[in-house]
Amino acid sequence: MLKNVKYFAEQSWLLIAASFVFGLLLAVTNTAWGPMIEQNEINKFNNLASLLLTDASFETALKDVEVDSGKGKKIKTSIKKGVSRDSDCVGWAFVCEGSGFADKIKLVLTVDAAFEKLAGFGVLASNETPGFGDKIKGDYYRNQFVGAPAAQLVLSKTGDDKIIDNEIVAITGATVSSEAVVKTVNNYIKQIKTCMQTEGLLNNAE
């Protein structure tokens, strides 16, 4: 018995010692850089959202909600309140997720304070085909959402992209990606609006 223990210790002392050292090393780096990593993620969201809702800051997370992705899955997102310098509520921002052409698409969606008009969206993460699907990041497509009603949007293949209404003109060669964005936006707008209305949050804000 004692012999076994001795043999075991002889064989593995280096491994065990190294595990401890490496564990310590990881713990130190994580405590040193962990807060920075979190801050980076918050900054990215804030930067995208404050481009859309000018000069607003998004300090307070209003509420965490679960949204049905439309495929039977629940995705968590948190609604953030956009506050201007005079501490007025200028709108709301939240992260949306939907499936695109190749992979998941993650968007930051912003709406105005009354939840009637979209303030636009920004792409957090996507993996769409370069030259085609990734044009959803371009101004041509995104500008159509700025000021569009926060109701059900419709995608059309021909139309005038300059007219801001609930009709979104698809990107040539990237109908699927265009449709994915519209679908995701519709899905989230509908569910989050209902959620906020039932909770009475919209009236409080005004």
């Binding site: 090393l25 990881l26 780096t29 994580n30 850089w33 962990g34 920075m36 990593i37 980076n40 993620e41 990215k44």
Partner: peptide, 11 residues
């Protein structure tokens, strides 16, 4: 460690 470094300084 390299991964944490990139996440912290070059997100």
């Amino acid at each position: 460690i390299a991964d944490l470094f990139l996440k912290a300084f070059a997100p």
